[in-house]
Design a protein around this nucleic acid. Structure first.
Lengths: 232, 232
DNA sequence: CGATGGTTTGAGATATATCAAACCTCGTGG
DNA sequence: CCACGAGGTTTGATATATCTCAAACCATCG
């Protein structure tokens, strides 16, 4: 008996492509791993030895320059796939932002398994295509948008993505109040800004009555329409 | 008899996954199309009706804001794949920068064909994963690098990617002299800068003796090491 | 309660954008 | 063959958004 049968992301992760016989085979090569906030699973530039599915928690993908500047290039949530299958190098670090649980595979085991299960590869392809679209949309924000537009777009994105599936009464409606899994510095690293600029934009949105900030990491959207206008 | 047998990208595009019987079937659903500079194949936000392989030329992928700001989110070369299979919407426009030839498929035809040919999907997956890595690396440039770092990184990237396979004496060595397929404005749209800043950085690199600019679109790298130092 | 780490606020510096004009390059037509 | 015009490019002067440096602030936790 493995974990897969009772896995909370069984039907949302790429595993949904597999029947119960196949999932047992996958179960045999995977293992669960817990991560604490700040703990990394993969490091930029290292050999690609692991891939994984996110079961619970939020993780960041990040790259940096030699002199210490950092850019967060992706954020992953439960059911998302992480790591670089079919490749030698990991292009970015993967680090937990919250307590997290992942389902880890050795890359070579996973590669072999995937090559024998086209339906699994197909799910992975769909996911990768969507992620590429999302990433390219983010490039517009980084290349062309002002600080206030970036913050507004970020908050809207968070309100949509932090929705826990199956929890809210109207299915998958965006939240009005949510806890950011990011520190101010991490928000800055997502948006290509400095921590001071992020802080100032937050307080501006608050004093303009667009959002409320009940605590450091909690955001309440008071006027979603105004936020959409500001997102550019 | 179709085009595929004599196609110059037959062994580099995703078609390389197919044997001669399969490629005939693919040939039956594809057709060639020529594009002039400035001509678009796909438009942001429209239904995803076409996908294609690039046979010759260079094309840009771009998105923009409502008020006219533009960001180039990708550049594709011969053997690259374009369009959004397995999805309803095209997330970005695709426009020729040079004279170009593409091999076009209706998306639904391609989707059906691909689902029956796992080896083709596998090639597409590999390509998409590589493109995602590349795109995420570009986010570091857009989010965290200065104008001079962006220009240096851009020129190095161009010198590597504009290499015509099989043409240079040392196989796939980066070029010292090459013609940019971009106007100054387009370089600005790739790098998230203004045309004036791009121009000033070019002239600075020239007066510093790092590059030469024999004509508007021609670049000669005089000191590659200096360029690498400046790329951050 | 006092240390600690993260956050906010302030004042000033600066890289890049903006606005505007001059300058090429190249094709066209007289 | 030269003058002209048009598009793209470079250069210049100025504005400004964001960064930088620094201090004050605030929660949290021993």
């Amino acid at each position: 008996m493995g974990f897969c049968e009772t896995c909370v992301v069984r039907n949302r992760a790429i595993c949904a492509a597999l029947d119960s016989t196949e999932i047992q085979a996958l179960n045999a090569i995977g293992r669960r791993r817990k991560l604490e906030p700040g703990q990394s699973l993969l490091w930029e530039g290292e050999d690609s030895l692991l891939v994984a599915n996110v079961i619970d928690g939020v993780l960041k993908l990040s790259t940096g320059t030699a002199d210490g500047r950092e850019q967060i290039v992706g954020v992953v949530y439960p059911s998302d796939f992480i790591g670089r299958p079919f490749g030698q190098q990991t292009a970015h670090s993967v680090t937990a932002l919250t307590d997290a649980v992942v389902c880890v595979f050795s890359r070579s085991d996973f590669d072999n398994f995937a090559r024998e299960h086209p339906a699994l590869e197909h799910k992975l392809l769909q996911r990768t295509l969507s992620e590429l679209d999302r990433t390219r949309r983010w490039m517009l924000l980084l290349g062309r948008k002002s600080a206030s537009e970036r913050i507004a777009a970020f908050l809207l994105d968070m309100s949509e993505r932090l929705v826990e599936p199956g929890c809210t009464t109207p299915p998958d409606a965006p939240h009005q109040t949510f806890d950011l899994p990011f520190s101010r510095q991490q928000v800055a690293d997502v948006l290509g800004l400095t921590i001071e600029t992020v802080s100032r934009q937050f307080t501006k949105l608050k004093s303009d009555g667009v959002i409320d900030l009940p605590s450091r990491r909690t955001v309440t959207i008071l006027d979603r329409e105004a936020l959409e206008d500001r997102a550019g």
